[in-house]
Amino acid sequence: MGPSHDLTLAGDRVLRVHDSGRGDTLTVVWLHGTPQTGALLAPVLQAADARGIRVVSYGRPGYGGSTTVPGRTVGSAAEDVRVLADALGLGRFAVVGASGGGSHALAAAAQLPDRVTAAVALAGVAPYTEEFDWFAGMADPTSLRAAREGRDARMTHALTHEFDPESFVALDWAALEGAWGPLGADAGEAGGAGHDGEVDDDVAYASGWGFELADVRTQVLLAQGGADRVVPASHAQHLFTHLPDAELWLRPRDGHISVLNALPTALDWLLARAR
């Protein structure tokens, strides 16, 4: 199988899969943020290659060539991960997710306990709850507020919504001008391809996830920027409180993108747990 290829699932649904195809210390399934195509990003590959880690990823439904699935939940990602792992002959593997990808990484950890060795969530979204003000600290919560009203409301919002540059702090912009430039380019490509993936992601974050945080029995590393204005630190605190076996790395000055600079250290953390 090549570095990028399509898997055909039940009902002729297509899942586009990307595979670095190299590395023998550990296999990591990378879960992308919102919006992204699912393609493997250069800074992820560089950190993985330096450690002999194989990286596999895929476009969630509605992104990067994968068939849209309206009404999908965060939890339904676990079955897609299982299918791609089976297709690639992966036995046990770790999961790493950035932003909303962190939430989907937790889904795989919860529902594939015999496969997932450990999980990392960088700036992960917490399940919607009334236990704390879920929107507090977001520079622009309008998309997720619309998602709370359902798919039609979120799609209508998408037709006129524009990104608020206040969502990123100075360190985020610096990261996007530097090592994480490919993430910005990929987000632009994903956003330009249509709204389905982003809309379905947001509705999934803001609805029932289909599993409980208490179901995640594997070790989880949470890395969170204290200055994050997209997914505020309160989300990481909620995850930390409710996950059975979690570690929290708070990086006080980091925002939503610059926290990704913790990825190389997070991969070292995964390698230590795989030994």
Rank of each mutant, 00 (worst) to 15 (best):
A77E: 11
F93Y: 15
F93R: 13
V203G: 10
L263K: 01
S76R: 07
D6Y: 01
A110Y: 09
D80Y: 10
L159S: 07
G59N: 14
D254T: 01
F168K: 01
A236I: 04
T218D: 09
A110I: 09
D80P: 11
A119V: 10
D86Q: 15
V83G: 05
D6Q: 04
A227Q: 07
G191Y: 06
E79I: 07
S167C: 04
V55K: 13
S103V: 02
P61V: 00
G124W: 10
V120W: 08
M155V: 08
R72S: 03
F135N: 05
L221D: 10
R273M: 02
Q237C: 00
D268G: 04
D49N: 12
E247K: 02
G21S: 13
A214W: 07
A47W: 12
T142C: 10
L40I: 12
S103L: 10
P165G: 08
L267I: 07
R273N: 02
A190P: 04
G101L: 09
G255Y: 01
P3I: 05
F240T: 02
P141D: 07
P127D: 05
L243A: 04
T129W: 09
L248C: 00
H235G: 00
L40T: 13
T117M: 14
A78I: 09
A147I: 01
D172R: 05
Q111P: 11
N261Q: 02
V199E: 12
L222W: 11
A108P: 14
L41C: 09
H195C: 10
E166L: 04
A179W: 00
G38I: 15
L122H: 04
P127I: 07
V230H: 00
V169I: 04
V125N: 12
A190H: 00
V203H: 11
D268Q: 03
H18T: 06
Y205H: 11
P61Y: 06
A123G: 15
H256P: 08
A119Q: 07
G65W: 14
N261I: 04
W209V: 00
A47Y: 14
R51F: 10
E162W: 01
D114E: 15
P35F: 14
D6K: 02
S99H: 12
P264C: 01
E212I: 03
L271C: 05
P113M: 14
A39I: 13
A139V: 05
R54T: 09
D186N: 11
A85Q: 07
T241Q: 10
P35Y: 14
I257R: 03
